[in-house]
Write a protein that binds this DNA or RNA. Structure first.
Length: 204
DNA sequence: GTCCTGATGTGCT
DNA sequence: GCACATCAGGACA
């Protein structure tokens, strides 16, 4: 990182989830443990919005697991799945309304020294390689352990495309997965047939 | 490169 | 019980 990053404040996350999803692309996810730091440029995300979205964990309402998603925006919702993977989500919208953005893939920028040329090209993989686990569930993204920053300089232009979300069985008609078209670090190859706009969000 | 499979914890029915 | 917002490794091409 040649320039320092500006931490996004809570107000960034208190908006429409689809806007946040696309705005997060090109921003930097930062994980800090002591003096070690990992930084990745966000290249792929998915939106999960409200109790009427059948793919959203809040589809079945408020439970101990989904409590964080109903909480204040700008916090991390981390959960465990498939018996072996953690997933990082960022809570959005307003308190009491369950919505979040799943961080699916990053382009490594700093701190990744292993042999894998794509250490962060999937949601479980990026959590593993950045030591993100359930201990971070519910923390604020201004707490200093984990946050999203934006580069103060000119950002390089890129094209955003939208597709169905990955790994779900219902809600596949919604185009709520956004990624940086042509980037090598997404979880799937770019598809020229993917849309240039998301499926419009319908409020409850 | 593609397709297929096994490993595995947790929340909720 | 079962359904998962998955990944790595092996078989094949």
């Amino acid at each position: 990182m040649s320039r320092e990053l500006i931490i996004l404040s809570d107000s960034f996350y208190a908006r429409n989830t689809l806007d946040i999803a696309s705005d997060l692309l090109g921003k930097y996810l930062v994980r800090k443990i002591g003096k070690r730091r990992w930084v990745g440029r966000i290249v792929e995300v998915e939106a999960y919005i409200g109790e009427k979205d059948p793919a959203c964990h809040a589809f079945r309402g408020l439970t101990p697991r989904t409590r964080v998603m109903y909480g204040r925006p700008g916090h991390a919702y981390v959960y465990f799945t498939y018996g072996m993977h953690f997933m990082l989500n960022i809570v959005t919208e307003r308190e009491g309304y369950p919505a979040a953005v799943l961080v699916r893939a990053l382009e490594p920028v700093e701190g990744f020294s292993g042999k894998d040329p794509r250490p962060t090209n999937g949601p479980g993989k990026l959590c593993k390689n950045m030591y993100i686990d359930q201990k971070l569930n519910g923390i604020s993204l201004t707490s200093g352990q984990l946050w999203v920053g934006s580069n103060s300089g000119n950002s390089i232009g890129f094209e955003i495309r939208w597709s169905p979300r990955i790994g779900i069985v219902s809600g596949t008609e919604k185009l709520w997965r956004a990624y940086i078209y042509g980037n090598e670090h997404t979880s799937r190859k770019s598809n020229p047939r993917d849309a240039k706009k998301p499926t419009l969000r319908l409020y409850d």
